[in-house]
Design a protein around this nucleic acid. Structure first.
Lengths: 214, 214
DNA sequence: ACCGAACCGTAACGTACGGTACGGCAATTG
DNA sequence: CAATTGCCGTACCGTACGTTACGGTTCGGT
């Protein structure tokens, strides 16, 4: 009868959002060593309240991941202006944003905890991260790719396959290295360069003027 | 005074290797829920022996990861026969082997536990996995790429950059999806197809007959 | 046959942490 | 102003697990 934010996506109160932000910060700092007591202390709330609101530790983690996911969502790509330049800049911006999110401390921490809990039979954090990470990227990017194909700028048969190649060209080994704790300097200018390279290579593979082999 | 296999890489006894194999199996089945008691039971040895040999739980995990790493090592690529066909088949075989290892249960389990422990201030499992995973792949593949360039078959400036692109083309989103627990069917024929596609795309980007843009 | 080392099995210890209970306070409601 | 509600702070409980200790057994060396 209680448990406001556990199973349903009822809107969170501001206090609850503050608590989840505290949990998020702690997750970034301490990783999976995050304890209920530490969250309660950081958020200046009682453990009882945590359990009333989120059910159990897993519910708190789930709510935290979803809360972060709800923040990132919404940067949709406009699909008007179908010329080559705007498609190129659209892909570049996309790749750039993606790398920026991917290499952020919050993303790394969230992916870490989701990977840690994957395979467990409890609530699947991995599915949530997957849904709001790669899959969300696919849902947003694939329409753009198809618009580009309809405009005669790109050539491919399988949209998902094209997306996954773009993913590979953008991310390469960055994410796994970050997750495994490799010290990694990825400045803003480096990210922009990576985005440009990936986009250029993608056009080399899927541009309509080159070939259509898939 | 004791601790045979903790810090140094003194050769393991057969019994120790059996114990580590048991730990490995348990790691695949239970993931990070692996307990010292379960390892002792599975390996039919006493906990006292585990602590004498490996120091503590972290030492056992480290030894297990290193033990698996020592098994995989050694599949080097021959670099004679520098024609296009052998280079192509070499890259394809490389990509195929890599995907096969990457999608194996053991690799997934090891990467999971390494990611879970990354950022911890104890022994860095992430570094070990990184060293025997992506970095080992780079060390083995980059010479082959350079041989291909010297033979006039490939064109690139930065070898590491070329390798990382190959990595992206081969792995794409497979690894992160596996780590996050996405149910994933990757049959042997699918892997071979992926390897062929990645190699073909790599030649499209870095083949000497196409362009040399980097 | 005897000794000591290595090791098995198990019991026991300490602690950390998830989860619960309870007393007190502040705000809201009637 | 009494009553209810919601929440903080803290103490508490149960348990799981890392770690240690110890008695009993096997086995190679002398």
């Amino acid at each position: 009868m209680q448990s406001a934010a556990e199973a349903s996506d009822s809107p969170l109160t501001e206090r609850q959002r503050d608590v989840l932000d505290a949990a998020l910060g702690l997750l970034v700092e301490a990783g999976d060593a995050l304890t209920m007591t530490s969250v309660a202390r950081r958020a200046s709330c009682s453990k009882e309240t945590l359990y009333k609101w989120f059910g159990d530790r897993d519910g708190l983690l789930t709510a935290t991941v979803q809360w972060q996911a709800s923040k990132v969502r919404g940067v949709t790509v406009r699909r008007d202006g179908l010329d080559l330049a705007s498609l190129t800049s659209g892909l570049e911006r996309f790749a750039s944003d993606w790398l920026r999110v991917l290499s952020g401390k919050i993303s790394v921490a969230l992916n870490r905890v989701a990977v840690s809990h994957a395979g467990s039979d409890k609530r699947d954090l991995g599915a949530i991260v997957l849904e709001n990470g790669p899959f969300a990227m696919a849902r947003r990017l694939m329409p753009l790719l198809e618009v580009g194909r309809d405009a005669g700028l790109l050539a491919f048969d399988d949209t998902e396959d094209a997306f996954r190649t773009f993913f590979g060209l953008v991310v390469r080994d960055v994410q796994i290295r970050l997750l495994l704790g490799d010290r990694f300097e990825l400045t803003d200018v480096a990210i922009d360069g990576e985005a440009r390279r990936a986009t250029q290579q993608f056009f080399a593979l899927y541009g309509a003027h080159t070939n259509a082999a898939g």
